[in-house]
Every structure is written in C-alpha cells, then in structure tokens.
C-alpha cells in the first residue's frame, strides 16, 4: 500500500475505508439499542415520577415517617438510654428466634439445592453428556441410548433455566397455599430457585476446567459418572464451595424476606409491625442488615486469609 498513498487525502480515504470495514457485531449493537431505548422508555413512561400526592402532603408524610422511626420510649422521654431495654425486649421476645430460623431455613435450602444439582452436573455438561464424550468413541450404543444422550444435556440445562426463572418469593407464595403455613414451602422455594442458579454457576466451572485428566480417565475405560466423580469434581471442589457460600449468603437475605408471607423469620416481624410500629420494624430491618454486614466482613477477611 505504501507506494500508492503519497498525499494526505489518499491516506484519509484509506483510513475511512478501513474504518468502514472494521469488525462489528450487529447483535451487540442491536442489544445496545434495545437497552438504551428500554431505559429511555422506562423513564418517560413513569409519570408522575413521584406519585399523585401533592408535594406538601408528601413532605408531611415523610416527616411523620422519620419521627415514627424513633423508638417509642425515646419519643416519650426524649432520652436515648431508654432505647436499650426496649431493643433488648424485642430481641428476646422474638428477634433471636426469628434470626435463628432465618439461618436454619437458608442453610437447609442451600444444602438441599446443592445435593440435587451435584448428580445432575454430568448430565448437564456439554462435553460429558453426549454419545461420544470429549469426542471419544464410547462403543456402539442402541438408538434409544443415543437419543437419550442427545436430549439429556439441553433438557437438564433448560430445567435449570426454568427453575431459576421464577422468583423464590412467588414459589413460596404458591407453595404455602398448597402445603399450608409451615417451613417446607419456604425451604423448597429457596431450594428450587437456587438449584437453577447453582446449576448454571457450577456448570460454568465444569465447562471451563481443563479436561485432560478426564479425557485420560474416560479413554482408560471409566464411565461418565465415575469420570466426573474421580477426575473433574476434586479439581473444582474449592470453587464449588465458594459459589455455595455466595449463594448461602443470598439465601439468608431472601429467607428474611420470605417471612413476610407469615413464617417466623425477621420478615414476618417486619411485616407485622409495618404500619403500626415503624420503630419496631426499623429495628428488625437493622438487625437483619447488621447480621448480613457482619457475615460479609467476616467472609471478606476469610477470603483474604485464604489467598
């Protein structure tokens, strides 16, 4: 090219030509356009943005609300030292129990989800769940078995998509109307939703792992599930644990809120005191929040220490 481009104008034309030819992804551009127009539409269609109440009313409500957040004994006496016995009463009355239940429900749910996902992973793997794992010939198979291995991967992965698509709150709401007001609906709802999410996260770890040892094991005559259990799983175990705890943290937060459906976690106490005892509600919100923050700081320190 160098000989042909002597004048700056020629060069500019060439630059423009190269610019026009540059690699572009129409799909990503379209996605960007959709997202931007979605945002613009969201704001333009949300009128009136602040609701229909007149401004002075809104301001008055707001001031009342702030006032009601102050603990009742403090509002009467004006002395903040009265807040301590009040808070302690709330804690031993139901607060501690609710906190305990929140943790128990989250723990039970995430363990349940993990137990169901683990054996499904080899069936969801793009490399293992096929007629010829890793492209290796697995011997002659019947038509039925071949069909099974063709279908099972997409089927399991779609199952994961479906189970994470419904919000846990909605699942719990529906399950309570069937099973009655007890903790199973809450645990099941959390488990079903997290099953889909763990399936995706753990699945991604499995897909991204180095498969050389697995290929060796498979070539040496091991079956699909034993290949998974002996070569893939030990290598990804630690990353699995990290995701497991990430989701457990989320479960604690979600279990808190699911109590709003009527089960004794902090959510129930929050929902019950809403509207009448804003000070109590605010206390429970802060209680739940501070537990999460402490857990968060703890896991931050733990991760730094592990590294």
């Amino acid at each position: 090219m160098s000989g042909a481009l002597t004048s700056p104008d020629d060069r500019l034309a060439r630059v423009d030509e190269l610019r026009r030819q540059r690699a572009r992804s129409p799909f990503l551009r379209l996605s960007a356009v959709v997202v931007v127009s979605g945002i613009v539409w969201a704001w333009l269609s949300s009128t009136p943005l602040l609701g229909r109440l007149p401004a002075e009313r809104r301001w008055l409500n707001f001031k009342n609300f702030l006032n009601e957040l102050v603990p009742a004994p403090v509002r009467q006496s004006g002395d903040w030292s009265d807040a301590l016995p009040w808070a302690w009463n709330l804690l031993i009355d139901e607060g501690f129990l609710a906190l305990l239940m929140t943790f128990a429900a989250a723990t039970a749910a995430i363990i349940l989800a993990g137990t169901v996902v683990l054996p499904l992973l080899p069936l969801a793997s793009r490399r293992l769940a096929r007629v010829d794992p890793f492209g290796l010939r697995a011997g002659n198979t019947g038509t039925l078995a071949a069909m099974f291995w063709k279908m099972i991967g997409p089927l399991v992965r779609f199952g994961f998509v479906l189970s994470r698509s419904v919000p846990e709150y909605l699942i719990a709401f529906l399950l309570i109307s069937m099973l009655g007001l007890q903790f199973w609906p809450l645990v099941l709802a959390l488990a079903i939703h997290n099953l889909g999410i763990l399936g995706r996260l753990w699945g991604e770890v499995v897909e991204n792992t180095d498969d050389a040892p697995a290929v060796r094991a498979f070539a040496a005559g091991q079956g699909r599930s034993s290949t998974f259990a002996t070569t893939i799983l030990p290598g990804v175990f630690n990353r699995f644990l990290i995701y497991f705890f990430y989701r457990w943290e989320t479960c604690v937060k979600d279990a808190t809120v699911l109590g709003m459906l009527g089960l004794l976690t902090l959510g129930k106490l929050i929902a019950l005191s809403k509207g009448f005892f804003w000070d109590q509600m605010f206390f429970y919100v802060l209680l739940g929040g501070s537990v999460i923050v402490i857990g968060d700081l703890f896991s931050m320190a733990l991760r730094r220490w592990l590294r």
């Binding site: 949300s46 009136p48 602040l50 609701g51 809104r58 409500n61 609300f65 702030l66 509207g275 919100v285």
Partner: peptide
C-alpha cells in the same frame, strides 16, 4: 417497604 412508606406509592420509589 421503607421507600413506599416514606415517599408514598410512586414509580421513583
């Protein structure tokens, strides 16, 4: 819950 109580029902909340 907090925002609806403080600001009233509105899209922004």
């Amino acid at each position: 819950l907090l925002f609806l109580s403080a600001m009233g029902v509105s899209p922004l909340a």
